[in-house]
Design a protein around this nucleic acid. Structure first.
Length: 957
RNA sequence: GCCCGAGUGGCGGAAUGGCAGACGCGACGGACUCAAAAUCCGUUGUCCGAAAGGGCGUGUGGGUUCGAGUCCCACCUCGGGCACCA
């Protein structure tokens, strides 16, 4: 079967494994491995070996779900970040993470856990749509082809997925529930009192009961009973967690769609496609993720994630504690946000963002031209330029002054582009003595700099200062008749006193701001989930009732959104669904008879489908609920009092640290608040795998050349006879250094690839791929095989006796070590310890009869196909999958005698062998009696002797 | 600039404060072979030495300790994230 259609690949295999088949027909070669692997993959599939029972529903199976005592077996929910089914299939980064979770899943099965482990596809999105545009083929067709291709690749790796649970986000049976969850969000509001999402009905009930009043209109209080239906709708929309807004959004003409803040790079371009992005006011769907900012930060403490990822999330949310301060001006109150209210005495001017709404009112006639020019200039700059630190400060005086509330000083109001409209209030109080940016601005424009703290190494004469002072130092020049900070030495105390004063005098209040913005949730594209929303003739959005779900993506052959010149900032989005007027215009009965409606023509962003997919794995065919509560509670529920609950292990790349992980946590929390799930976090333990790097080579023009064709030549490297330079980079197409997982399977077998991927180094570290190193773990499998199997006959060939005492000890050391390493996802050292034990057996000339089964069981999670084959050869008819993993006997871990290194002044000078149960005194006596020790001491008396039982002896001479 | 990581043989990497370099690659020597490949056995941090043995060694400089790759302080380099965020 292999020989017929893969001539290239079997040539490769022959080169590696040579003529082994002539003299050793049953040697473990790449070819033999492939035969074994195909056979076991077939059998696993036929027998449903990895099907996992649920507590309830169609996947329930009480005999496998319950233990011998009739109790639910302990669970492990092990999850990979699901792949996008790209046309080029899996790259090596996928098998890296997938192998780790598979090994862990298999190990957990062998330690008595009910393991949920499957794989789905995040299949909506741009590339499929773009490919469809190019080929004219419907994205559903290419998507399904790609999924089938990737399934075959996954199967070849021997991943122990429960196939019945696999989903694609593009299945109508799946996105029906994505739409349903959207409606849950749409029909919810955030109650600031309880800090939880509640049903919109409960808000309406509060309005109707009069316990809550609608917001004021133009400062005039209103009552629910007196306002119109349209006004009520607007009021509710102002509370909904999903809402249509006309706020500034990121418009990307090159993509023809708007994108979320998180999808815009720091230089103001689209994450996908690298097109310019422009801030434009547009009517778009938003999600009120900002209401969850505090909980998204606070609940990180419940999670077993690395500090790096937690800090990225905290950073992105950007919680900042400070105060609002209100300044009087000729144009009314100007509010600023500051984290240093304690420095208010030093505020000598104010700066507004050029876009600030009060600028016109503040600008005096004399300054009007200068201000107008500056605003035009600022508007023309892109974010990249504007946020480029180190740029010389620019700004223009408005001609007006504001009053410092603490000391009544009249301070000039400027505009400058270093103040951003999107953060805080878009206005700052400038304290040049305490803020470096303000300091630079004041120096450039000759504005006052008043010291309000007395740093130990400076005078209060700020003309001698080279920079602003930030930190703790006693206050100075900081008192008025009712507030005196002078003499206070801590900034914290200064802030506290100032905030009290501001509140008492109505000039401000303590507050918290966030960098996080609401999540822009609509896209003007085709290949995504349609919104389950219809607009009435007045343009008011209505959520569709459950029975109208799913809102299927309509058929068309015009998939392409209109894209524009990437720099055409004034272009307007045109969604592909707009064109499908038959679909857009519908008559629906939403409670008051058939009425004409217009469907929403946006689609959801690709993140929508990945916000909850892990829960659909729990109950993939459920038609009445997105997941049965009993199934959710078992698989996701908190395992300890006050625990977060969630997936037990989530493995994936760090590139999702902010986007996917933040959005998914947000949706999950809404579902938690509404009582749909019992876990308050979706992913309890997150593990970020490293990248696979590989050597990449550039020719002298700087172009990358195919790394596979580069040869080492006299100290350097060459390609096609021309010299090239080497660097290391993420393995992939762009650097032309990709290695195909399928090729590796063909050459060595999947078990070898799996072991190599894991043996390369710690899972969280990025590591360079070296194809020549793969043979190391292949030899290991070969040696295990040879220790158990006769290479000439294929039959079992063990040593005819049981293991000696030392070998038994080595076994138990290996069991204990391998368990410890697997428990902690340290696959590299787990493999090393297994190799070590097998090397011990090899030195014995083979495997003692009683060592074979424990060895094969320990191998089973790591190299499952080879282990199954060996297990079967050892006479078993059942799969090794559910065999109990060996348990170390602590009594057998220690030898009768211990060899102590003897250090003299910290250097090892000798070794003595002492009975394992010898006390410290005995060890010391033996060490001192040692000849070499005596000769090094040369008759001197040791000052001190330290004996660490079981470890070592150190003599201080 | 701020926040995370990380610096160990020729290479990938191991080491609860207790024998630095497990395990693997490569290299070198040997077995098998007509030969090569594959496989197997052995050696392999480095310097001095014929050897016995000894010196030096975990980015740099200090410190704590009987003992530091590991803990503390300062610095250097590299990787990642954030950034005129008030």
């Amino acid at each position: 079967m292999n020989a017929t259609n893969t001539s290239n690949k079997s040539d490769d295999a022959a080169r590696v494994d040579g003529a082994a088949t002539d003299t050793h027909p049953f040697r473990y070669t790449g070819e033999l491995a492939q035969g074994i692997e195909a056979r076991w993959q077939d059998r696993w599939e036929a027998e449903g070996t990895f099907n996992t029972p649920n507590p309830v529903g169609p996947l329930a199976d009480a005999t496998r779900f319950l233990d011998a005592d009739g109790a639910a077996r302990p669970k492990k929910f092990i999850l990979d970040m699901f792949p996008y089914p790209s046309g080029t299939g899996l790259h090596m980064g996928h098998p890296l993470g997938f192998t780790a979770t598979d090994m862990y899943a298999r190990y957990q099965r062998m330690t008595g856990h009910n393991v949920l482990y499957t794989m789905g596809f995040d299949a909506f999105g741009l590339p499929a749509e773009q490919f469809a545009v190019q080929t004219g083929q419907h994205p559903a067709i290419t998507t399904n082809q790609n999924i089938a291709n990737i399934r075959a690749q996954l199967r070849r790796l021997g991943l122990s997925h429960d196939q019945r649970r696999s989903i694609s986000t593009t299945d109508p049976g799946y996105y029906r529930w994505t739409q349903w969850i959207f409606l849950q969000v749409f029909n919810s509001w955030f109650d600031p009192e309880t800090k939880k999402a509640r049903r919109i009905d409960e808000l309406i009930a509060e309005f109707e009961a009069g316990t809550r009043q609608p917001s004021d209109a133009d400062g005039v209080a209103r009552s629910w009973a007196d306002i119109s239906a349209a006004e009520r709708g607007l009021e509710l929309d102002g509370w909904r967690l999903a809402y249509v807004s006309n706020a500034p959004v990121n418009w990307c003409p090159g993509l023809g769609t708007v994108v979320a803040n998180e999808e815009v790079t720091s230089d103001g371009r689209s994450d996908r496609g690298n097109f310019p992005v422009f801030k434009r006011n547009m009517r778009q769907w938003m999600m009120r993720i900002t209401t969850y900012a505090d909980r998204l930060i606070d609940d990180l403490d419940l999670l077993d994630w690395t500090e790096a990822i937690k800090s990225m999330q905290r950073n992105w949310i950007g919680r900042s504690e400070g105060a609002f301060v209100h300044f009087d001006s000729s144009a009314g109150l100007i509010s600023v946000f500051t984290t240093r209210p304690d420095t208010l005495f030093g505020a000598t001017f104010m700066v507004l963002a050029p876009e600030h709404s009060l600028v016109d009112a503040l600008t005096t006639p004399e300054q009007a031209t200068a201000i107008a020019e500056y605003r035009v200039q600022a508007a023309a700059q892109d974010d990249f330029y504007r946020q480029n630190e180190g740029r010389e400060k620019t700004g223009v005086f408005t001609g007006s002054f504001a009053t410092n509330p603490l000391n009544g000083a009249q301070i000039p109001v400027w505009i400058a582009d270093y103040v951003l409209m999107g953060y805080g209030t878009g206005a700052i109080m400038a304290v040049p003595s305490g803020d470096q940016r303000d300091f630079e601005f004041a120096r450039k424009f000759g504005l006052d700099i008043v010291a309000i703290q007395q740093p130990a190494d400076r005078t209060l004469d700020t003309s001698t200062w080279a920079e602003a002072f930030v930190g703790d130092a006693p206050y100075a020049n900081s008192s008025n008749e009712s507030l005196n900070l002078d003499g206070v030495t801590s900034v914290a105390e200064g802030k506290h006193l100032t905030n009290e004063w501001l509140t008492a005098h109505g000039r401000g209040e303590a507050t918290i701001t966030y960098k996080l913005r609401d999540w822009l949730f609509s896209r003007q594209r085709y290949w995504g989930e349609p919104f389950p929303i219809a607009y009435d003739l007045d343009g008011n959005p209505h959520g569709l009732p459950d029975e109208l779900l799913p809102v299927s993506l309509p058929e068309t052959d015009q998939f392409s959104p209109r894209t524009f010149d990437p720099d055409d900032s004034m272009s307007n989005p045109e969604s592909p669904l707009d064109r499908l007027t038959d679909w857009v215009n519908v008559e629906l009965d939403l409670g008051d008879g058939l009425q004409p409606y217009r469907r929403d023509t946006n689609v959801m962003p690709q993140w929508a489908g990945s916000c909850w997919y892990e829960m659909r794995y729990l109950d993939p065919t459920n038609e009445v609920d997105f997941v049965d509560p009993a199934n959710e509670a078992y698989w996701m529920g908190p395992q300890t009092e006050g625990g977060s609950g969630g997936v037990d292990l989530y493995v994936g790349g760090v590139e999702h640290a902010v986007l996917h992980l933040l959005y998914a946590r947000f949706w999950h929390k809404v579902l938690f608040d509404l009582g749909h799930v019992t876990s308050c976090e979706p992913f309890h333990r997150l593990f970020n795998q490293g990248y696979i790097l590989a050597a990449a080579y550039q020719d002298q023009r700087g172009m990358y050349v195919e790394a596979a064709d580069v040869v080492a030549a006299d100290g350097g490297y060459s390609h096609d006879g021309l010299p090239v330079t080497r660097e290391y980079g993420k393995m992939g197409k762009s650097l032309k250094n990709a290695v195909d997982p399928d090729e590796m399977c063909a050459q060595y077998g999947a078990d070898t690839l799996r072991l190599y991927l894991m043996a390369m180094g710690p899972l969280d570290a990025s590591r360079p791929w070296e194809s020549k190193d793969v043979v190391g773990v292949h030899r290991f499998l070969q040696r295990v095989w040879r220790n158990i199997v006769d290479e000439a006959t294929g039959g079992i060939r063990l040593l005819p006796h049981d293991a000696d005492e030392e070998t038994v000890r080595q076994l138990h050391i290996a069991i204990s070590g391998v368990r410890e390493e697997l428990d902690n996802l340290r696959f590299n050292t787990a493999i090393a310890k297994l190799i070590e034990f097998n090397n011990h057996l090899t030195k014995l000339g083979g495997c003692p009869a009683d060592m074979a089964e424990p060895l094969v069981k320990m191998l089973a999670p790591l190299a499952p196909h080879a282990a199954e084959e060996l297990w079967q050869k050892l006479g078993h008819t059942e799969s090794v999958t559910y065999e109990p993993f060996p348990v170390a006997n602590p009594a057998l871990l220690v030898a009768d005698t211990v060899e102590y290194p003897v250090q003299i002044n910290g250097k090892v000078r000798s070794r003595v062998t002492v009975a394992a149960d010898a006390d410290a005194g005995t060890v010391q006596a033996v060490a001192l009696a040692d000849e070499k020790v005596q000769s090094v001491l040369a008759g001197g008396t040791p000052k001190k002797i330290i004996v660490i039982p079981g470890r070592m002896v150190n003599i201080v001479a």
